[in-house]
Amino acid sequence: MNNDIEHLLATAADDTDRPLKTDVDDLLVRARRSVRRTRIAAASTAVLTTATIIGGVAVWSGGVPNTAQPAGGPTNTVAIDPDTGKPIAPPPPVSPVSDREVIGRCMAKETEFNRAMHRDPASVAGGPLTFKWTVAVKSSDAHVLEAILVAPGSGVADVCYINSTPGSPSWSGQRPRLTQPPASGTVYRAGYIQGVRVPSEVTKVLVDVPGEPQVRQARMGADGFYTLGVTPSRGPGSPPAPKTKPRIRGYAADGRKVLDRVLPFIVHGMPPVPQR
């Protein structure tokens, strides 16, 4: 019934007077190129995707250096401390000063002091500061740098405090000897809120200061040291510092409470509470 149409279509498609310009070999080359391009595009996409993910993660975790900051990063949600019912303030910001610069600054101040006091650097516990020392924890603001440096072998620490506030610069460098802290921690610096060295299994430290509406979360460093930030310098005319005995708690990575004690000394001066 449709033979007429089929005939007409066959006649219309007659290409006897239309030489074929397609060369099958050329077509094969084109097809191979197309496959190659697809593979390259797929590989490039995979590489780009991976790079984007890595870049995204790097940006997301930017500002969290890989030294002396093992745990307890800031979060956007307000966590509540189940023990006290108070909100937990975020840990202090990471010091932007590099570990090498921290050591360099502390070395310079110590050398200056040794020279002025005619002190033999070798006579100091742990010997002179060198770049072989490691920065266990550090914090800083525009004028103050606080850091705990640990000697090779971990037997001695250097508590380095540099205040470069114009008009009242100061420096101090203490050399406490380190022993393995017991479960309750070791007080290596009395009178300071961050003067306790906690057992190495502690990955989170919470400090509850009586009278404060929130609980402070410390930024953890290495070797059981932590920081709550820089204690601002107390110049003349500053209001009297609150005198309190803070409660310090340490938790292991699995959430187990390892340490819970009230500091046996009065703390003079407190770092500001970081804002969320």
Partner: peptide
């Protein structure tokens, strides 16, 4: 594939011509 392409290319071209009207 080369064998298939050589056999099919004219036929496909004619079919396409009927659909688009341009060789």
């Amino acid at each position: 594939f080369t064998e298939f392409a050589a056999a099919m290319v004219r036929r496909l071209r004619r079919t396409a011509y009927l659909m688009c009207g341009d060789w």
